Amino acid sequence: MKKYFIYWTLLLLPIFTFAQKQTQEGNSVVTPLIPTSKLSLLKDVDVVFNTRMAFDNYFVDGNHTNSLFSVNQFRFEVKGKIHDKVSFRFRNRYTKIADPSTVDNISRSVDMAYVAIDIAPQTKLTIGKMIGDWGGYELLTNPIEILSYNTINDKGDNFLVGAALSYALNDHKNKFNLQLLNSRTKTFQEQFGTTVPPGITTTKIPLAAVGNWKGSFFDGKLETTYSYSYFIDAENTNRNFISLGNKYKSNKLVLYYDFQYSKEDLDQKGVVSNIIKSKYPYAAQDVFYIENWIRAEYQIRAKVNLLLTLMNDNSYWNGNPDISKENHLLASYGIIPTIEYSPFTDFNMKFYVGYVAKKYNYSAYAENNFNAIDGTIGQLSFGIIAPLLVL
């Protein structure tokens, strides 16, 4: 027995010694991964996983085509203040192809990557990649809340690199924002390729100027975001964009209405160009788009919310060389009824059922000259929406 005791003592002595050494070292002061002096910054920083996942069912002209589970939206976001007068925001979309851009040197999957500096009590300077402030609440709404976009926001470059200067009046009910941005994320050749019309050449200053006014009236019940934007797309080839966004809040009802008008010397959205491509190999010139977007939200119970979105877009081609032309080529309509259930009162997560229905009505001229065919598409979704705030 004594022999075994000596044996086990010799065997376990190094382990006890090592454990004692580790315990002694554990009692010493260890430098944390994040210095204590920096921990105070975290209280002003948010880390968010903007998420929408669903079981989607797709329909074309009333016929079911397929069903599958999808991560519709997953945008990682970090934002906050890193100094009393300096803040930042970064958001990357992982449900978009991360193709690099040859214009602004940042992937198109990055929505925002900017720094904002308070240069005066009511004046802010923002530099980096940001959302184009051309107004409209459809674009300003968190993308995880939008099941489908109207044409202009769906087809446009909405996140661009540049600089912005914003100023708020003393009453904070009126805010003005001026932006100077790149007019696109791709080079002119990458965007149009062989479809560039004869006589159209690239410009040395592909920039966009945006002026925006945000107002608040009647104790915040009515809010507006109006803007005018001017884009230089090519030499002597420009784009004019007007957007009028309106928001009304009353008790349990929130109502939005956006009106948008885009006049384009060279078709940037590509809708008209796609209609006429069977006869004209070049991108359409002198086009314009007019659209309306309405969204109503009504809380029928503490945890139940009803939503209805209506949208309409009209596509016109003024540059048609046909003397018997009809300018109006396409009218599209959309309706999105949705019901949301929020099971937690202290956590922003919603289960939803929504149906996206869109109808495309081509003019008789488009049907007869470009073989355009009317059609409908639908999407029935069962899923969850959650801006997961993890920090």
Rank of each mutant, 00 (worst) to 15 (best):
Y7T: 12
W8S: 14
L10C: 05
L11D: 09
L12W: 08
F16I: 02
Q20A: 09
Q22P: 00
T23C: 07
N27G: 04
S28F: 11
V29G: 11
P32S: 11
I34D: 06
K38H: 12
L39S: 12
S40N: 02
L41S: 07
L41W: 09
K43S: 12
D44N: 08
V45Y: 14
V47Y: 12
N50Y: 10
R52V: 04
M53R: 02
F55I: 05
V60P: 01
V60L: 07
N66P: 02
R75F: 13
F76W: 14
F88N: 05
T95V: 07
I97A: 15
D99A: 13
V103C: 05
R108E: 13
A113S: 13
A116F: 03
G128P: 02
G128R: 05
K129Y: 12
I131F: 12
I131Y: 14
I131T: 11
W134Q: 10
E138H: 03
N142A: 14
P143W: 08
I144A: 11
Y149D: 03
T151P: 00
T151I: 05
G156M: 01
V161A: 15
D171H: 13
K173R: 04
K173W: 13
N174W: 14
K175H: 10
L178V: 08
N182Q: 15
T185R: 09
F192S: 08
G193D: 12
T194D: 09
P197S: 12
K204N: 09
I205L: 06
A209H: 02
G211V: 04
G211W: 03
N212K: 03
K214N: 07
D219C: 02
L222V: 05
L222C: 01
Y228S: 03
Y230V: 11
I232H: 12
N236Y: 13
T237C: 01
T237I: 00
R239N: 09
N240H: 15
N240L: 08
G245F: 10
K249A: 13
N251W: 08
D258Q: 10
F259G: 07
Q260S: 13
Y261D: 14
K263A: 14
K263E: 14
K269R: 04
S273E: 06
N274S: 12
A284I: 05
Q285T: 14
N292W: 07
W293F: 13
A296W: 00
Q299N: 10
I300Q: 06
A302Q: 10
L308A: 11
D313I: 00
N314M: 07
I323V: 11
S324L: 11
E326T: 15
N327V: 01
N327P: 00
N327H: 06
L329V: 14
I339E: 03
E340R: 07
Y341V: 03
S342C: 04
T345L: 03
T345W: 06
V353P: 01
G354F: 05
Y355P: 01
Y355L: 02
K358T: 08
N361Q: 11
A364F: 07
A366E: 15
N368G: 12
N369S: 06
F370N: 13
Q379L: 05
G383D: 06
V390M: 04
